[in-house]
Amino acid sequence: MAIDEISNRKRFLAGDNVYLPHIAVIEKIIEETPDTRTFHFSFKDEKLRREFSFESGQFGEFSIFGVGEAPFCISSSPTRCDHLEFAVKRVGRVTSALHRLGAGAEIGFRGPYGNGFPLGYLEGKNLVFIAGGIGLAPLRSLIWNVLDKRDKYRKIDIIYGARSPADLCFTYDLDSWKQDKTVNMVTTVDKGDDSWTGREGFVPQVLEQLAPSAKEAVAVVCGPPVMIRFTFPVLAKLGFTPGQMITTLEKRMKCGIGKCGRCNIGDIYVCRDGPVFSYAQIRDFISSEY
């Protein structure tokens, strides 16, 4: 298995009860796109604020009291711990309620859960980050993590795409990565508008044109399921082995800790065994229900 390093999964339980959330305060809200917002938050409890740690790729169960819980990955990097961030696309009940919150509002947080990206495995490699839409949220945590320890890694390519220029998230990050001489950053949109001077085309096509070398490289792919489905074959064509392709899977996760049952793919529980998997693992799943 490519991912041999399972994160050590630090635990931060409130009152010894895994279901009891910590109270966190929203400090800042960034309007990423018309339907996506980033929330900066910090724990109310000072000790937890100091001690909390997590790994890129891990997620939490976020809640609004009276509305309910939903899982989101932590989109900030563990290397920048003065506050935490998560990004939310407005798609349902809980996400709409989150979008109605203002700075100062209190939310609940349980976590971090899941395995996180295999940093040890990425060390010393050429990295190709491929993301679509809000899929950049888990990946930007990893990208900043890697950039903050830049000398541990080799060449870095980032390919990011969205439906339209207005759908590009984290444009402030895109700008700084574009300026970073140690990063090869490519942004693309499915369809540009009048003012768009950048690249047009779907992420898998752009990947094929750029053709990053598979030699001593790892590709990390996050985005909508269709994008991932079309990206893997392109990577394979470029010579990436299934073990060199890493992604995160999305499921409706309620408990986050392997109990409520709904996130399974056969005997794999995405909340506990994932959400980060290599394609080598995914290929061996009993079920194709992902």
Binding site: Y19, G66, G68, C255, K259, C260, G261
Partner: peptide, 9 residues
């Protein structure tokens, strides 16, 4: 044992 978690006010 599958379960759901919900809020009621």
């Amino acid at each position: 044992y599958c379960f759901d978690i919900n809020d009621e006010v």
